[in-house]
Write a protein that binds this DNA or RNA. Structure first.
Lengths: 234, 234
DNA sequence: TAGATTGTTAATCGATTAACAATC
DNA sequence: TAGATTGTTAATCGATTAACAATC
């Protein structure tokens, strides 16, 4: 691939999804004072194979040195830039139940690149309460928040209100939504919804757990049970 | 595919990951008193295309009726059975910070198939406290829990303790782990780890958000911006 | 039977992997 | 130069999709 940055286009979704993990691994190396890593070392830390890592990085540009490896800080910066973490994205969390409360306090938001600018709830008796140093506002506040710039909406309401809240976010121009409610959201095609779903994850685990149990009792005679996971690769 | 259930083998990972969504959609239909659906209707409710839904279901067996559709209750049962939800999986949550607290109270666990049997924390001043009706126990309790049967461990500790907790779970025989800590866990290959990671999801959103911003200001001249998401398909 | 809809086929698309030429 | 490691190629693998024969 060309070294010309303007030629870098169309990074595969699967690659984008792994960049955060690479960035995290690089941060870990930097904290331990390591300034240079090979694709083999970085891949091991990120839990993938080195061929996949190199292929992924090749989509961003050519940031390694043959025979040497990657400079930790430089590669971390390039990945950060590609992910858009060199700027700040204002985030609003909607729904201040147990989950929203935990999210407001969660350090994941505190990572570089994101700033929780508002906590919203439609329940009037939560309004004015302070959570993690931020005052809970009513849903009406969305319009003025959007005017000040709001990039990401996090939906932590019950499933029954999620679509309504989503529609309100879309109406004020928010195009990136992280949905914790266990339901499918319908959005215009230029809106990006990602979903974090506990019970889906549990059910996927249950599937494999059952599979092992059946294999153990010999119910699946003709099946050799595949490794489900391994330290590298996935 | 054969109607013989013993011939149903090797359901693709991508299909397994969608089964919970189909099940949820079916539950929704059942609640509204709808007893029969076409692949078109069910697919729309689950946010996929009908061809994908039919292909997915074909891996489970032949549970539809040509010219008619699927019987809601029957298909829901078959998917539940395939996912292993017709039995109860004992779950332990480890780490009773904000997140663990929210998880303990979260209704996602209350869905059929899972039962939170223990809350654990290594912090001695949380011990004995009751959260969501369950008493917090020390990590030592893991051994006896495992003897009584423990299928799934949910790690809600800080990243720094996650690998240690994971090792303890693996040591007592737990082979299904849901990791909320932002780190890669190293496990034997017969252990299944799934990860729920807030900041990874945010970073993926940021990538697309930045992409839209750059496209809007014309920085990506040669790129037509692809739809990022749509109501159907993904 | 006529109309409807499934289950399957075959083509396409995208992701992964191993191997190695390029090159520090 | 000799050794090491990247970036890329090409083969493989798996997932998606549209179309349609099977069949209720």
């Amino acid at each position: 691939m060309s070294a010309d940055p303007s030629a870098r286009r169309g990074i595969p979704d699967a690659t984008v999804a792994r960049l955060p993990e690479y960035l995290r691994a690089l941060t870990g190396f930097a904290e331990r004072g390591i300034t240079s890593v090979s694709s083999e070392e970085l891949a091991a830390a990120a839990g993938v194979r080195s061929a996949k890592l190199r292929k992924d990085l090749s989509h961003l540009g050519s940031y390694g040195v043959r025979g040497v490896g990657y400079e930790v800080d430089h590669l971390a910066y390039q990945i950060s830039r590609e992910l858009g973490l060199t700027q700040d994205w204002p985030v609003a969390i909607i729904g201040m139940g147990n989950l929203g409360h935990a999210l407001a306090a969660y350090s994941g938001f505190a990572t570089r690149g994101f700033r929780v600018v508002a906590l919203l709830d439609q329940d009037s008796h939560l309004l004015g309460q302070e959570i993690a140093g931020i005052t809970v506002q009513p849903m009406d506040a969305l319009t003025s928040l959007a005017e000040q710039g709001l990039a990401i909406g996090v939906i932590a309401t019950p499933a029954a209100s999620a679509q309504d809240v989503c529609d309100q976010l879309v109406a004020v121009g928010v195009r990136s939504i992280l949905n914790f409610a266990p339901c499918v959201l319908v959005v215009p095609e230029d809106v990006d919804v990602r979903k974090v779903d506990l019970s889906t994850e549990l059910q996927i685990l249950a599937f494999h757990e059952q599979r092992r149990a059946l294999a153990a009792e010999g119910a699946l005679e003709h099946v050799t049970l595949e490794p489900i996971n391994s330290a590298v690769g996935r």
